[in-house]
Design a protein around this nucleic acid. Structure first.
Lengths: 101, 101
DNA sequence: CCATCATTTAGCGAGTACGCTAAATAACAG
DNA sequence: CTGTTATTTAGCGTACTCGCTAAATGATGG
């Protein structure tokens, strides 16, 4: 039997809110923001007690959601925050407060 | 072997963003908001193609996250939106934009 | 009471998430 | 080349999510 292909999240909001749901991923975003927007994978991994590959995975989830992007810098990888989708999520939530009619 | 107890989400943000991650749950919130804040379980279930118990489950996730609350009304159950935690999430996202340094 | 209506609870199955360790890759230093 | 540093990929196990159907609950009407 052929292996079923993995599910693809087509909905942007679903990807963004799913990414924001995990505390490690929120910490990555907050730290990245606080540190001026750019950090290496190693510096990010050092924030956590768990194994490095686990962090790699969180970074991939964040990148797939469009919340971060990366660039090679020699043998390191520099991750930077991208706030456009954070703004999108904030605006979605905003509608609940600015819609008197 | 004893069955492991289910995981409890102690983190408010985790509960809220997890709840917001599913499109059905976002539709419930948007519809509740649009309809003036209150709807019966039946009216909410009628929004979806999927079986009623599936909607019940989504309502429980939303309620556990503090995004909705309910009250009995005869044999029906009236669900109403509670925006406090939506505001909390919106404000959390807001910090990424109002922190110039 | 008894049936019916509105809704939830119980429990199952397939798929997904998230931790881990081991192995692979890629760039740099000697 | 060879080793070292930085990081990802591969693959595994356990727990959780989300759909389903069947059964239970609780209020109302006759």
């Amino acid at each position: 039997m052929a292996k079923t292909p993995p599910k693809v999240l087509t909905d942007t909001y679903e990807e963004v809110f799913t990414a924001l749901a995990h505390p490690a991923r929120r910490l990555i975003l907050m730290t990245l923001n606080f540190e001026g927007g750019e950090m290496t994978a190693g510096d990010i991994a050092a924030l956590f007690k768990h194994a490095w590959p686990t962090t790699t995975r969180h970074l991939q989830v964040l990148e797939a959601a469009g919340l971060i992007a990366h660039e090679r810098q020699g043998r390191a990888r520099l991750y930077r925050i991208d706030k456009k989708r954070l703004a999108l999520a904030r605006d979605w939530l905003g509608w609940f407060f600015k819609s008197p009619r």
